[in-house]
Simulated assay, not measured.
Amino acid sequence: MYKHVFGPVPSRRLGVSLGVDLVEAKTCNLNCIYCECGGNSKTYSERGSYVNVDEVKEELKSALKKIKPDYITFSGSGEPTLNSDIGTLIRWVKENTDSKVAVITNSTLLHFDEVVEDILEADVIMPSLDAISEEVFIQINRPHPSLKSEDILKGLVKLSEKFKGKILLEVFIVEGVNDTPQELKLFAEFLKRLGIEAIQLNTLARPGAVDWIVPATFKRLNEIKKYFESFGVLGVEIIKKYKSRDQIEKYSPEGEKLILNMLSKRPYALEELCEMVGEKKEELYKYLEILEKESKIEFVYMEGSFFLKKL
């Protein structure tokens, strides 16, 4: 059992991801109403060495003897860029492992040059953007008083100009809060100007920090996707976990039968199954999420890889 390293976690976006938590639980400069880790008793504003760097390195060395992840992902139960050692650790991972590096961030500190410099060696950065207007930013993210919505927008522009890897921007939709016509228009205008590779619409999968929040429906997410596309925003996709087959565009019963038939013979690694059924990993996960939810398959970690097994 590790203190800082967790997983591995199978991910539609990152494959097999080994997580690294660089702050203590709930060390964050936001107190988002949708946070699945629960609410904060306080918010933080200062960067610092929140964990022991040598401990993190030793845990990674130990974990990597047993696990061969596609990505080592700096994320966890708080905001990783609050840790001023994140750049040191990213460089150490790049120099001492074969894994790619991902950073999941709430984008609040990207307007600082030193923060962007710290994460430039990552392969994938997954920032979030939940609001454009200051009013909605305060309502949905409940930020530390030092934070302003305009700083997040400036930071995302700075990141897009300097970072040479892949940016996957997550927009978390809370129906009735950040999906008003006024806010969506502001989103669309900014996202078109930003011009990054992928915009990922997401919503609640587990209970949030407040009890009144409910997941946005697939229908609503699809409406927002089409609205953004009508403005010329490229690369918009929905990453909400699916609850039923009828929520999934182009879900094929024949494809599902083929997957189950393959797995009835023996377990397959995710990459093997993609090759055998002729689907990209992102498409295959549409089926796997449903089948796993129905307890027809399970993910099993063996010999440094995730395998899929029929139950």
Rank of each mutant, 00 (worst) to 15 (best):
M1Q: 10
K3D: 10
H4K: 11
V5G: 08
V5Y: 15
G7L: 09
P10Q: 00
R13C: 02
L18C: 05
D21I: 12
D21H: 08
L22I: 04
L30W: 15
I33K: 04
G39V: 15
G39M: 10
N40Y: 13
R47C: 00
V53H: 08
D54V: 09
E58D: 14
S62T: 13
L64G: 09
K65P: 01
P69M: 11
P80F: 15
T81E: 04
I90T: 05
W92V: 05
T97C: 02
S99L: 11
K100C: 10
T105Q: 03
H111D: 13
V115A: 08
I119R: 01
D123V: 09
V124Q: 15
I125Y: 13
I138C: 12
I140H: 10
N141L: 02
P143F: 05
H144N: 14
P145A: 06
S149Q: 06
E150N: 11
E150P: 06
E150T: 14
L159Q: 08
K162L: 13
K162F: 06
V171T: 09
F172H: 12
N178T: 02
T180Q: 09
F187V: 06
A188G: 00
K192T: 05
G195T: 14
G195E: 13
L201Q: 14
R206N: 14
R206E: 11
V214H: 01
I224T: 13
K225V: 02
E229G: 01
F231S: 10
G232S: 10
V236N: 13
V236M: 09
E237K: 15
I238M: 04
K240D: 09
R245A: 01
R245L: 02
K250L: 09
P253L: 14
E254K: 08
G255F: 02
K257S: 12
K265D: 08
R266K: 15
R266S: 08
Y268R: 06
M276P: 00
M276K: 13
K286W: 01
E294P: 08
S295G: 13
E298K: 15
E298V: 07
F299Y: 15
Y301P: 05
G304D: 05
